[in-house]
Design a protein around this nucleic acid. Structure first.
Lengths: 138, 138
DNA sequence: TAATGTTTTGCAACAAAGTTGCAAAATAAA
DNA sequence: TTTATTTTGCAACTTTGTTGCAAAACATTA
């Protein structure tokens, strides 16, 4: 599985470092969104805060992960599907955040409906985030 | 117009103070969303940062303003329509944020479409935020 | 309108989140 | 293996938000 993540890094012209491998692995083995703090914990505080910030930023730029805006204003990151490219995300799916357990779900099968904007407005990104209680907490 | 905002404050069982009047007045005369920093500037740094935080929090609790989650993870606040009640917002409209000028529009006439969640998931809040270029910047 | 009780404000101190510059270490290329 | 490039970790800093508490502002009643 480490070979797996190494491949992804190489495909994105990134040098394969331990922090990048570990963090990307975390996303692969965790189908949900992760906050900066989650990553810090799950990696056993092995990496510097700054390194994690920079790694996440790099991943977003390369289209490996995308950010999710939340109502309580914390940044979440989740893996992109394969059709994302550097600088151009295609993550037009709906996100669900459970208020109780905090888990964030990428509802890949639910696409964001087309919004007909007023005249002259041009869309570049749309986020649809639902919060409430997930099936485990309801 | 100050009578106007005083009325709103009283209606919500809030004592009428200068900061509350000034900040609510700002929202009334600015049909768009405001960030904490905007309010600080527009009030000429007359009020303490803490006061502004607390005032905004109070307004959100009372259903006078609502928050808007943004992709770049800054909190925005906008006036609620009249049908909002304490602890229960009805701001199910779409928000548009212009990447260029930073203005946030409440697209009141565009309602958020119903999302059919997976079995067992219960919705309490839905945010749909579109970003791009507004009619003035496009 | 003056006196009283309650609420709100501003200050200080703190906590959390994120950024930047730079030398040392790790990775890639030769 | 050596050299060049990239990434990391540290330190210091900025920005954003929170909390406790005394002083000031507000609301209430007489």
């Amino acid at each position: 599985m480490n070979t797996d993540v190494s491949e992804i890094l190489k495909r994105n012209q990134l040098s394969v470092t331990e922090s990048r491998r570990r963090i990307l692995d975390l996303f692969k083995n965790n189908n949900g969104a992760l906050a900066h703090a989650d990553i810090e914990k799950h990696t056993g505080e092995q990496f510097d805060r700054v390194t994690i910030y920079r790694t996440l930023q790099t991943f977003v730029e390369k289209g490996i992960v995308h950010t999710i805006p939340t109502a309580d204003n914390s940044v979440l990151y989740a893996l992109c599907k394969d059709d994302c490219e550097p600088g151009h995300h295609h993550d037009n799916h709906i996100h669900f955040i459970c208020d109780q357990c905090g888990t964030t779900y990428c509802l890949d099968h639910l696409t964001i409906p087309q919004v007909s904007l007023p005249h002259g407005f041009r869309e570049t990104r749309t986020d649809l985030v639902v919060s409430g209680k997930c099936d485990k907490c309801a």
